[in-house]
Amino acid sequence: MTAVLKVEGLSKSFGGVKAVNGVDFEVAPGELKALIGPNGAGKSTCFNMLMGQLMPSAGKVYLKGEQITGLPPRVIWRKGVGRTFQITGTYQSMTVAENVQMALMSHHRKLFSLLPYAYRLFREEALALLDVVGMADQADRSCAILAYGDLKRLELAIALSNDPMLLLMDEPTAGMAPKERINLMQLTSDIVRDRGISVLFTEHDMDVVFAHAHHIMVLNRGELIADGTASEVRANARVQEVYLGGGTLYAAEGSHA
């Protein structure tokens, strides 16, 4: 089966400093894969290159076998990649439903239409997506007054609106309470299972990573130093040295099972 996402020799330098250096990996269909590593290791740079926000210095990115390297974000989105951000970027002046409707208008190519009232377009479809993430009851609230965790769920609904085959989630649970983190990642896992979507996410909460990721990649100083299952990565001496440390900062193995 072709990998949904395949990355070959991805590199990026900023003024001579190699932020990402020769990274290769694949994401299989239906896989929930985590990318971890210390701050400044190149995770965000990597993500921004996958989604087209940054032009790689070298290397190729393939989506279902098609090369998408260096395409602008909006084009990559139209090819079926959804993205959520570490700091949410929803439209503050719109209601919850309108935020999803906006993405649907884009998906259905109605952006330049001048005649209809926008608030009536694709409302049913938007409500259905909000229902998936459990936000339908808040559809008509202003986005500016949402609680943080609800914003994250809204972002997920927006990311689903173009029926993506791949979701890129940048620190999806940053800033949430432990319980909310578990709920959001559970929701994401369910969506992955139900819709056959693949997910690549970065994360700092090792508890979340070890509990939900099928596979984990570790990035350090721009290079991939590990790519494997949770227990393989935990046992990796190099990963322990540069990243995980003595294990005092996350739950012991199996405590989530």
Binding site: P38, N39, Q240, V242, L244, G245, L249
Partner: peptide
């Protein structure tokens, strides 16, 4: 202080 920092540095 520990937000976004490798566990090893946090230690």
């Amino acid at each position: 202080p520990s937000e976004g920092i490798a566990p090893v540095i946090v230690e």
